[in-house]
Each structure stands twice: as structure tokens, then as C-alpha cells.
Design a protein around this nucleic acid. Structure first.
Lengths: 202, 202, 202, 202
DNA sequence: TATGAATGAGGATTCATTCAT
DNA sequence: AATGAATGAATCCTCATTCAT
């Protein structure tokens, strides 16, 4: 049971320690003891601050998600509508905060748990929709809505695939290559549209 | 004399039970006890047939991988070289044996463990390369080798992304939609090539 | 439960396999499975022939004891009474059948269990007394009975100590040295007697 | 804050409980559960304090060995060089701390494991050498070095044999008798030496 | 007689969680 | 607020033993 005077500092410490441990040992081997050790505090205190392992993991996942949403927000606000904003949203997925090793591999670990832990599923649903609606909205200025939906979905899938590959240490896919591939996908979709229009106009 | 050949039968039974349990409860909650229960045998027998949990899991993952390779083989052998074969390889990833719920979610569970379990990493490396080389080879008849490599990589990423989304029960992506999206990606890449050539020839 | 048609051959095989396994892995790690494997028969058959692990171990210990008694018998029957017979009894303890590695280390393993397994205790009691009475009897022709008892006990202790040291692989005590030391002890005791007599006669 | 310094206290408690259990049930039946029960703590805590069973047993053996070495030290320091010190070293082996039932039977249990557990072998090697060198050193003032070595070895064997017999509950050898026998052995060896000299001088 | 499949109990170990200090 | 001692449940694994064939 989270106590009233509970400090945000401790929570943040513990979330970061959790991410580190997940990255180092995998979610399976992430025990409260190891998290506490990593954070430099006693094992009992971990339970104390989060009440429960489930709550710690959910909070950690939420932290990842919020961090991604933060990047989306920056992308939306700092760019002109239309293509620049679409590209900014793509780039947001590969921002420094999103592409460090720890984040990427933790994200995958959680993903594998989403189907089995309702608390994580709730969080997950939000983030998937958010990326979709961000992209759809930005693309809508460039093409009809149904096209926008289609391209947004394709881009979302592509980005997930890229994250997945990047998370494999043997994957040999670095961040820059991944980002380029996502933009490349967008290019091809845009060209297809142009081609279509050209065909139609012909 | 007891029934002969029990070993192979039991191993297959246990692998299938393992997949079921992973699908139902997640890899974290996959205990030898639950696997045994699912297979209708005593917990001790699970260890007996696989030596230990690690070997059971590795054997299960290998089973998934082999099954996918089997689909690739069918795709290669049953089609004419060129575009039909490329499409067949794409389809192989979405064949019935690959797209049932159990397979898809088990695959994701293993994926999350690959970085932390060397035995799984070894298996994983093979399957990633295999898809890449199958696609590259098939695409090579249609375009220059460097293009083929690029498109093959993009397709691989796309397919991984599609599997990932499909594995989320909330993903709302069904098999047919996923396959269509992969072919769509191929289309757009082919058209881009044509466009390039057109541009160059202009 | 030993079956009626049970073959002595199997029992002998199993006892020898048991001794080997004890020597190789220690009594702690001596499982029926390993014994069966060593004997080249199925694990179930081990239980079948001895009913019970306890019975197998008791039979094995008894085998060791009988083998030693056999040596004593040879020593008694093949020598003239008096000093030669005493020396022969000493030598019996270091006969080839008693001093091979397997016998020595198995003997120690059982010794450690004697206090905790009544079936072994019964067997043990016999063998200790037997050595004592053999020696006492043989020594009685050389000295008064109370002296004989004393020397016999000292020799028995010496022999046990020698076996103990020899059983340690790091002990650096080989059979010949051990035997020599036992005879040396006898010599010193005999000389002490002589000295006593000399003193008394002085 | 919880009680500090619990670790050392618990470790000592557990070592003593281990000795008790070994004495009562034998090393084979010495489980962490029983040790914990004897110490009045939960089974999990035993592993917690010693990491694993092997370390607990090694620590327990080391405790026995250290206790014996402590007696040797007292013997060396509290006596004049020469014969008194030799006798003191002999007595050290039969001091109260060394001759209680629990110590004696635990010692035998470990002895039987020494050949199969490297961690115990390392400890064992030390203690055997220590007794030998202590005795040899003390005897060197009384006789030539090669004689001293010989007598020391004989005494060591004798002491081991006496411990072995004493450890058997049916052995009927009490501590005082055992000590007397060791001194008796020394006497006979000394007399032999004198006799030799006498013979030579004659 | 022999096999080896199968069981189920038992043991070591890990871990989330609680609690006295 | 913080510690880390303590618990007890859960899990993996081994093994003696049984039993159908």
C-alpha cells in the first residue's frame, strides 16, 4: 500500500532500476530484490513503495508509455501540419529517449506480457491507439481519410517491426537504419498514391 | 514390456502442451507442473523427458521454427521462380500453421526471452537469416541484388511487425489483413522501382 | 520382495555394481537408477531383486563383511598357531580382496551409516567382534589373556585407522606401508612385553 | 531497524543445528528443512544464510576442523617442548570439545564424503597435515627426524582408528580408554627406540 | 523374467511479502 | 522513513517404487 508521504524520487529511482534489471536479466528474472539492489535500497522498501510487484511493473510500463507520448507531443507541437508533422511523428518513435537499449528491450518484455496481465493490457491499448490517431490525423491533410487510415496502420506496423528487430541484440539493425526504413515506407506509400492519381488523371 | 516409442510421443505431447500453456498463461507462468497437467501426465515426467525446463523450452521454440521453415520449403518448391515465389514466401508466414493464436503468442513470448537465453538466441539467429535469404534469393530475379536486399529486409521487418500486432489480442489485426498488408508493401516497393527506372529513363 | 526364481547371478551383478557406484559417487549419490545402469539392467529390476534399497545396501555390506571373514578363515587355516597366525590375520586385512580401492572406500561409506541404519549396525557388530576374537585367540598362545585382549584391541584400532587413511584418496598411504605399520605395531607391543618381563625378572 | 549482527549468530546456530542433525540422522538424512527445524527457523532461511547446502556443510566441517586446530594450539602453547608437548598434542585429540558424541559422529560422516566433495577434500587435506606436522615437530626433539616422522604417522593412524571406533555407538570404546591407548602406543614406540639404542650400544 | 513408463513424494532453492525495530 | 530478518508458498528436479506389457 503506497504510503501517503511517499516520495516521487524513490518511485522514479525504482522505475529506472526496474528498467535496467529487465534489460539485463529479462522480465522473468526481474525480482524485487534485484530491483532494490540496483536502486541501492533494501528489498523491503520496494514493496513498500509500490505495494506490490504488479504495481511496480505497471508503473514502469506506464513510464515508458508516457515517455513515448511526450515525444509525440513534441512532434505535434513543433512542426507544421502536413508532411513535416508526419515525419516528425515517425522520428518521435526513434528519438533518443525511445531508442536506447534499455527502453527497447524492456518494451519487448512488456509486450510479451500484455496478453496475460490486464493492468498492462489497459496501458497498451492506449499507446497503440495514440500512435494510430496521431499518424492518421497528420496524414489526413495529405490524402483522403481512408487512405490515411491505411497508411497510418502500415506505418504503425512497420515501426513495431523495426522496434522488434532492433530489440534483438543479434538483429544488426541500428536506429538510423530503422528510421530510414520507416521514412522509406512512407515514401513508397506516398508515391503509390501519386502514381494512382497519375494513373487516374491519365 | 512397456510401450515402446513413448519418448517421441511424449515429447510431442509435451511441446504442444507447452505451447498451450504459454498461450494461456504466458511464459512467466509456464511451470513444468502446469505443462504436465495440460498434457495429462505427472509433473515429474516432464523433467524426465526433457532433462530440464530449459531444454523443454528450447525444444518448443525449435518446433515453432521448424514448422515455419517447413512452410518456407513448401513455398519455394511449389512455385515458379520470380514474383510468384516471393508472394508464396510472404504467404508462408501467414499459413494456417503459423497464424493460429497459440503459435503467434508463443512466438512473441520466446522473442522476449531471446536476449537472455543463449540457447534460444542460437535458434533465433537461424530463423531470422533464413527468412532474409529466402526473400533475397527470390527477389534477385526481379531486381538488382542491392535492391533485393533492401526490399527483403523491409519485408522481413513488415512481417515481424504484423506478427507482433497480431499477437496482441487487442490488436484487431486479423490474418488476412496482415497478409494483405505485406503484399501491399511489396507492391509499393515494386512500384517504386518502376518509378525509379522511369525517372532514370526519362 | 525377493522372488523365488531369483538368480544369484543378478544379485552378485548388482552388488558389484553397487560397490562401484559407491566408490565413484559416494553413498549419498548411489541411486537405484545408477546401480542398474552400471549393471546394465533396467532400473525397475533392481528393486525387483532386492525389494528395497535398504536391502540392496545391507546385502552389499554383508558381501564386504563375508569377504573379509573369508580372508580370516584362510589366515586361520593356512598357518601354524602362534605368531605366524597372528601375522596372517593382520595380513588378511590387507589382502588383495580387501585393499582394492572400491572395497576400501565402500567400507568407509557404510561405516558412516552404521549408526543410523539398524540393519547395517547388526552386520557391523559381528565383524568388529570377529576380528577381535580372531586376534585374541591367536595372541593367547603368546601371552596372558589380559595382555592378548589389550594387544588385540590395539591392533584392531590400528587396522581401522590404516583403512581409514587408505580410503582417503589424498592420504598417501599405500597398502604395503599400511601393512608394515600394523606389523610394526605388533612388534612394538611384543617388545614391550619382553621388556616388561625383563624388568620383572631383573 | 532489525536486529543487527544476526548473520553471525544465525550461522553459528545453523552450524550447531547441522551437527546435531548429522549426529541424529546421518549426513544422508540431513536436509535443510531438518536443520532449520532444529534451529527453530524456517527452511528458506537456511539457504539464505549459507547460499546453498554445500556451503553449509563445508562451513560445518570447517567449524569442526577449526575447533580441533584450536586444541592443537592450546597444546603447543601451554607445554614445555619435548615429551610433555607430544602428550599434550595427543590429548588435544581427545579434549572435551573433540570427544562428545556429536562431534565424533559428524566427523565420520564428513570423512565418508571427503572423496566425493572437493570442497571437503580441501579442508580435510589441511587437517591431516596439521596433525602430522604438529606431532613430527614435537617428536623431533626426542629422536632423529626420520624416526619422528615414522612415529608421528603411526600416532596419527592410531588416533584416527580410535576416533573411528569411538564413533561407533556399539564400539564400546570410551574416551579415556582411547586416550590411554594412544599414549600406550607412544610408550611402546619410545621403548622400541630405547631398546634399539640399547642393542646398538651393547 | 525383464522393461521402462509412470507416479508422487521429498528436497533444495528462490522470492514476494510482512514486520519488528 | 528505512532496514533487513523472517516466513512460507511455489518451483524445479530427483528418486524409489510400482505396474502394465
Amino acid at each position: 500500500m503506497p504510503k501517503k508521504g511517499m516520495e516521487a524520487i524513490r518511485q522514479q529511482q525504482l522505475i529506472e532500476a526496474t528498467l535496467q534489471v529487465i534489460h539485463d536479466q529479462g522480465l522473468q528474472a526481474t525480482t524485487l530484490g534485484r530491483v532494490g539492489q540496483r536502486a541501492g535500497i533494501s528489498p523491503g522498501l520496494v514493496s513498500h513503495y509500490f505495494g506490490d510487484k504488479g504495481h511496480l511493473l505497471a508503473a514502469t510500463y506506464l513510464y515508458l508509455v508516457r515517455s513515448l507520448e511526450q515525444e509525440y507531443r513534441k512532434a505535434r507541437h513543433g512542426t507544421a501540419a502536413g508532411l513535416p508533422r508526419v515525419r516528425a511523428i515517425i522520428d518521435a518513435n526513434f528519438a533518443a529517449s525511445q531508442s536506447d537499449e534499455v527502453t527497447v528491450s524492456s518494451w519487448l518484455s512488456f509486450y510479451a506480457q500484455v496478453n496475460h496481465v490486464p493492468a498492462l493490457a489497459r496501458i497498451q491499448r492506449v499507446v497503440t491507439r495514440r500512435l494510430g490517431s496521431n499518424l492518421t490525423h497528420a496524414l489526413s491533410t495529405l490524402m483522403p481519410r481512408d487512405h490515411a487510415l491505411h497508411v497510418a496502420e502500415g506505418l504503425g506496423v512497420m515501426i513495431d517491426g523495426l522496434w522488434l528487430r532492433a530489440s534483438l541484440r543479434t538483429g544488426g539493425l541500428d536506429v538510423d537504419a530503422a528510421r530510414a526504413m520507416a521514412h522509406d515506407y512512407l515514401d513508397s506509400q506516398l508515391q503509390m498514391l501519386t502514381g494512382d492519381r497519375y494513373d487516374q488523371s491519365a
